[in-house]
Design a protein around this nucleic acid. Structure first.
Length: 480
RNA sequence: GGUGGUGUGGCGAAGUGGCUAACGCGGAGGUCUGCAAAACCUCUAUUCGCGGGUUCGAUUCCCGCCACCACCUCCA
């Protein structure tokens, strides 16, 4: 395969060559679970979901690890985010973590984001983190002060290579307490001494404390993917200091390259400003899913290249919705025609069109996962599908099935925007029967030119969310 | 101040050294329909932030400038 990716480490588009042919190890920075996930998370994780789905579609064996951060993030005030939340609602820290970790998975499941193969938690990997910190101290890359351990940035020659920062350019840290202890302002914490009021604490060789934020990803990536692995993903807002620090720690501790390819996703913005928990300008995934189908949120998430920002607005969501409706309308029509289509009949010409769409789709996805263009390929195909299906000529079942398969694979398996045909329940069958009865009654009314009655049936059904469309070969319905 | 990124039609957005600058949304007109809806067709950027340069030719390469965003402090 000829997959190319834009490697942020080096800032150029390069051929993607897995470390082990046929296998891809990928690590993506996961959320800190102290609140419900918002659309910014949705964009990022949908993007990486599609990347993983496409790698698998390409025949690669993917091991996908995404952490859950449940300890270690400090606020400006030196408070732990999770502890702060716990105090606010009078709950144990691990209750908070559990609540929002579940919420996160609920949201991702709802969005059709496939679960990572491994979702390790920082709090469950304290020994691994301690061990890595000990290694760093032993090798002279870290030092202990008053029960805390800091990474000596000056000892890591490559520090800054991902974000193109030089240590001397960095603004000095502003945290008084931290600054006093650190040898250099740019050094960062690997382990923090726990003050008496700090509930989340573990024993360590340096006394009771808790791990710094960056070390978890280094320790867990190493545990599950090895010292060197293929892809590290994350959001642009974590490129510095988090990702940069991960690299420094891991490469110093392991004497090996860390991730070989860095794929960094652009932020979701609102009115041009980043959507974030701290700014409070966020829309939760749960809220968004009350108004839009998960497939529409996915369409929105891939309206720009994964590395670019996407701006949220009602208009953008409506646009994504309308675009999705057009695509799915063709799929729905294909499926409904399959039920009554004549068997046999090859439809050779259209098979070629489908093969062309598939080839184009692969070609654009191979080019650094160009999702907007992949959607465009499906939109162009949809024009031809609609033309065929509305041409009035009989289309054989084999052709319809080939069309359906193409949508299922490219739009369904890879992009996750075409839901599989749902098996109808007995309730569903009863509903379909009742609607068909009304359609038959309306047909009779129309035959009698009793349009007042036929329009009444159509309007009443529309009020219930059932839309009727008259085609030359009969009336079809759909639930809006 | 430093670093990274972006600037393409009413909106979102892809893209390329030169064929008609994708695709979607929106808008206008048309076909079809009892009317709709859906679909399809046509139209909707002589132009790609601004100024130079390289070139036979640049939106695409180079330089400068302007604007916006992100990061440098917690955030995917």
């Amino acid at each position: 395969m000829a997959l190319k990716v834009f490697n942020v480490l080096g800032r150029e588009k390069v051929d993607f060559v897995p470390l082990t042919p046929g296998y891809v190890n990928i690590y993506v920075c996961g959320p800190t679970v102290y609140d419900h996930a918002h659309l910014g998370h949705a964009k990022n994780y949908v993007n990486f979901d599609i990347i993983v789905r496409y790698l698998r579609f390409s025949g690669l064996n993917v091991l996908y690890v995404q952490n859950i951060t449940d300890v270690g993030h400090l606020l400006e005030s030196q408070e732990d985010r999770i502890l702060k939340k716990a105090r606010e609602i009078q709950a144990l820290p691990m209750q908070i973590v559990e609540t929002y970790a579940r919420s996160y998975f609920e949201d991702m499941d709802a969005l059709g984001v496939k679960r990572p193969d491994i979702s390790p938690r920082a709090s469950g990997h304290i020994p691994e983190q301690i061990k890595m910190i000990e290694t760093l101290i032993a090798k002279g890359n870290a030092y202990e002060v008053n029960g805390s351990v800091y990474f000596d940035v000056g000892s890591a020659p490559g520090y800054g290579k991902l974000s193109n920062r030089k240590v001397e350019q960095l603004e000095a840290g502003t945290r008084e307490v931290v600054r006093d202890e650190k040898r250099s302002p740019e050094d960062f914490a690997l382990w923090k001494r726990a003050e008496p009021e700090h509930i989340l604490r573990w024993d360590s060789p340096w006394g009771e404390g808790f791990p710094g934020w960056h070390i978890e990803c280094s320790a867990m990536a190493k545990k599950y993917l090895g010292p060197t692995f293929d892809i590290h993903g994350g959001g642009i807002d974590n490129i510095f200091p988090h990702n940069e620090s991960e690299i420094a720690q891991s490469e110093c501790a392991n004497d090996a390259d860390f991730a070989r390819y860095w794929l960094i996703g652009g932020s979701l913005t609102v009115d041009g400003v980043k959507m974030s928990k701290s700014l409070g300008n966020f829309i939760t995934i749960k809220d968004a899913l009350r108004d839009y189908r998960p497939q529409v949120v996915r369409m929105f998430a891939m309206s720009a290249h994964y590395g670019s920002p996407v701006d949220y607005s009602e208009e953008a969501m409506r646009s994504a919705n309308a675009g999705w409706e057009r695509l799915f309308g063709a799929v729905r029509l294909t499926r409904s025609m399959m039920a009554s289509a004549p068997a046999g009949e090859d439809g050779g010409a259209f098979r070629e069109r489908l093969a062309q769409a598939r080839a184009e789709f692969i070609s654009v996805m191979d080019d650094d996962f160009n999702m907007p263009k992949a959607v465009a390929v499906l939109q162009e195909l949809t024009r031809d599908v609609n033309t065929l299906l509305n041409s009035g000529q009989a289309v054989g079942r084999a052709t319809l099935e080939a069309i359906n398969d193409t949508y299922n694979q490219l739009g369904g398996d890879v992009l996750g925007i075409i839901p599989a045909a749902e098996a109808s329940s007995s309730n569903g069958q009863r509903e379909a029967g009742l609607i068909q009865l009304l359609i038959d009654m309306r047909k009779q009314a129309r035959a009698n030119k009793n349009y007042a009655e036929s329009d009444r049936i159509r309007d009443e059904l529309a009020r219930l969310g059932v839309v009727l469309e008259d085609r030359s070969d009969g009336t079809v319905w759909r639930v809006n």
